[in-house]
Simulated assay, not measured.
Amino acid sequence: MAHKKFPIHPAHPERTCWGCDKFCAADSLACGNGSERTQHPVELFGDDWAEWGLDPVAAPVAERAEPPPQA
C-alpha cells in the first residue's frame, strides 16, 4: 500500500484531520485517532514549518576540545 504524499501547504488545513494517512474530513474522524482532529504543522508552527531543522547540505562540525593543560 502506497502512502499519500503529505502536503506542505494545503489550501484549507482546518478541513482535514492530519493524524494518519487517511486524511479524513474534520467532522468524520474515521480512524478513531481521538475525539479531535490533528492539526497540520502549518496551523501550529506557521508557514515556514518545513524549513525548520538541520541543514541537509552542511554536515555538523564537531568542535574539538582543547586538551587539558599538563601540570
Rank of each mutant, 00 (worst) to 15 (best):
D21V: 04
A30W: 08
C31H: 05
E63K: 15
W18P: 04
P7H: 06
A26M: 06
G46A: 03
E43P: 01
A11R: 14
S28I: 08
D27C: 09
C24Q: 04
K5Y: 02
C17Q: 05
E36V: 09
A30G: 06
L29R: 06
N33L: 05
E36G: 01
P68W: 13
P60H: 10
E51G: 07
S28K: 13
C24V: 07
P41I: 08
Q70M: 11
E36T: 14
V57R: 14
H9I: 04
D21T: 01
P69H: 12
H3Q: 07
E14S: 11
R64K: 15
G32E: 03
N33Q: 07
A11G: 04
L44Y: 00
E43N: 10
A50L: 06
K4V: 09
E14L: 02
R37N: 00
D21F: 04
H12I: 07
Q39T: 01
A25Y: 06
F6I: 07
V61G: 12
P41R: 12
Q39V: 00
A71W: 02
W18K: 04
R37V: 00
K22I: 03
E66V: 13
T38K: 08
V42K: 04
Q39L: 15
A11K: 13
S28V: 12
R64W: 13
H3K: 08
D47F: 10
S35G: 02
W52G: 02
V57S: 14
D47K: 05
I8N: 04
R64I: 10
E51V: 00
A62K: 15
D48C: 04
P60E: 14
D47Q: 08
G34K: 09
I8Q: 10
P41E: 11
H12Y: 05
E14G: 08
P60K: 13
M1L: 09
A26H: 12
K22T: 09
K4Q: 10
V42E: 05
E63A: 15
P60N: 09
Q70D: 14
A65M: 14
G32T: 09
E66A: 15
M1N: 11
W49I: 00
P7F: 07
W18C: 03
H3N: 08
A62R: 13
A50N: 06
W18L: 01
G32W: 03
E66S: 11
H9L: 12
A30R: 13
F45A: 06
E51T: 12
W52E: 10
Q39M: 10
E63M: 08
R15M: 11
